[in-house]
Computed example of a mutant assay.
Amino acid sequence: MARQDRQINIRMPQKLVDELKKDANENRRSVTAQLNFIVEEWLKDQPKIPK
């Protein structure tokens, strides 16, 4: 990730954070990279709404 990328702060339950860290470690990714992957995959699966 580049320094010019937007940063956001989010709150989530500790249990979810722990699971995210575990999954990131298993996938050999940083937590940031794991979150980006999850969000990108979720967005791909969303139905496209016609304009």
Rank of each mutant, 00 (worst) to 15 (best):
P47W: 03
K51Q: 05
K51E: 11
V31G: 02
M12L: 14
L43K: 03
Q14D: 12
I10Y: 01
L20F: 11
E41W: 04
S30D: 06
K22Y: 07
D18M: 03
K15L: 01
N25T: 12
A24F: 06
R11K: 10
N27H: 13
D18Q: 10
E40C: 02
Q4A: 14
D45K: 14
P47T: 03
P50M: 09
N25K: 11
E40W: 01
V31R: 05
I8P: 05
V39Q: 02
Q14T: 07
E19Y: 00
E26Q: 11
F37Q: 05
K22L: 03
T32E: 07
P13A: 09
E19S: 12
V31P: 00
Q4G: 05
Q14H: 07
I10S: 02
E26D: 15
D18N: 06
I38G: 08
L43E: 13
P13F: 03
E40M: 13
Q14P: 04
A2N: 11
N27I: 06
D23Q: 10
S30N: 02
Q7V: 03
A33Y: 06
V17R: 15
A24H: 00
R11P: 00
I38V: 14
M12E: 01
I8T: 05
V17N: 08
L16W: 04
F37N: 08
R29F: 06
V39C: 11
K15T: 06
P50K: 12
Q34P: 00
D5E: 14
W42V: 08
L16Y: 02
D5N: 14
E26H: 05
P13V: 02
K44L: 09
K21W: 01
K51I: 07
P47S: 00
E41Q: 15
E19K: 15
Q46D: 07
W42F: 04
A2M: 08
A33C: 02
L35V: 13
Q7T: 05
E41M: 11
D45N: 13
M1E: 07
E26R: 14
Q34T: 02
E41F: 12
E41A: 15
A24Q: 01
R3D: 12
F37D: 04
D5R: 10
R3Q: 09
K48L: 08
M1S: 10
V17H: 09
Q46W: 07
I38A: 15
